[in-house]
């Protein structure tokens, strides 16, 4: 791997929707300033936002680590929440374990993980029940993947 040009770390607070999305918003700004194509900026920031929101809702908060080099952005969102018992099921659109209080805010459509997959070039998820979940998202700047 080539040396990262920009590295950022963020703390994702649990159940705090006043700050939720700030990390992905900040990353979006950095990518835009770097002159990355709008399609790539949108895909990377949407995938990261979904992972960030999942950490807020399900993961008791967590951390975001971002590395940007000349070819790609690599995002790691990790939490120490309950983990995902059935990842294959969770990847299906419409499947959600979000409580009613979260649904009332408009989340819980069961599309978070599938949105990440749709927008990322590479999505890897490590999860273990009672240990937590780590999501790895890679988006290449020269990727022609459309959304």
């Amino acid at each position: 791997m080539k040396k990262a040009v920009i590295v950022r770390d963020y703390t994702i607070p649990a159940n705090d929707f006043t700050i939720a999305g700030e990390a992905s918003s900040n990353v979006r700004k950095i990518l835009t300033q770097l002159g990355v194509s709008p399609n790539v900026v949108k895909r990377a920031s949407i995938a990261m936002y979904e992972a960030e929101i999942n950490a807020v809702i399900h993961g008791k908060g967590g951390n975001a680590h971002v590395e940007i080099d000349e070819n790609k952005i690599y995002i790691v969102i990790s939490d120490e929440g309950p983990g995902i018992a059935d990842l294959e099921l969770a990847m299906q659109e419409g499947y959600s374990t979000a409580p009613d209080s979260i649904r009332e805010m408009g989340f819980g459509a069961g599309m978070g993980l599938s949105n990440m997959k749709k927008h990322a070039d590479i999505l890897d998820i490590d999860t273990e029940v009672n240990r937590g979940t780590t999501v790895h998202i890679t988006v290449y700047f020269n990727s022609d993947k459309k959304i």
Binding site: P38, M105, M111, N115, I147
Partner: peptide
């Protein structure tokens, strides 16, 4: 009104209508 659904479907330049 489903945010993730909207996130996946809104195109750049769309007017987004929601009650949230």
């Amino acid at each position: 009104d489903l945010l993730s659904h909207a996130m996946a479907k809104i195109n750049t330049g769309d007017v987004w209508v929601t009650v949230h």
